[in-house]
């Protein structure tokens, strides 16, 4: 019963990811794609959590944490790129 629920949730998440993917592909603006990517990352965090439950293992908890950090960094980097055109600025004073 519990497994069925988990699988159902996984299916929902997968649909959500596919939705996010559609947005990432379709656009139309860059910001849409970045947001979609962020969404996909968060969905993946949830997905990995549920898969861990399903497999009854704690081996993927690091992956969840890492993905959280990476999703944040990635979103910030992309945002900065959209705004400034570069991610790491060179020092101006030299």
């Amino acid at each position: 019963m519990f497994d069925t629920v988990l699988l159902f949730m996984l299916l929902l998440l997968a649909i959500a990811i596919l939705g996010g993917l559609y947005r990432a592909i379709k656009g139309p603006s860059m910001a849409d794609r970045v947001l979609a990517l962020d969404l996909i990352s968060i969905m993946m965090i949830a997905l990995i959590g549920i898969v861990s439950l399903y497999f009854e293992t704690d081996a993927f908890l690091e992956a969840i944490l890492l993905l959280g950090i990476l999703a944040f960094i990635g979103a910030v980097a992309l945002a900065k790129y959209i705004e400034r055109g570069v991610i790491i600025e060179r020092k101006r004073d030299d």
């Binding site: 990517l37 990995i48 898969v51």
Partner: peptide, 28 residues
């Protein structure tokens, strides 16, 4: 971005196929 998505999905495959170390590395 699509390449990024591709890589993340591969990481998910690693999760599903029970390879936590690979998944971690792949994500990073």
């Amino acid at each position: 971005i699509s390449v990024g998505v591709l890589g993340y999905i591969v990481a998910l495959f690693f999760v599903v196929l029970r390879a936590p170390d690979l998944a971690l590395t792949q994500l990073a």
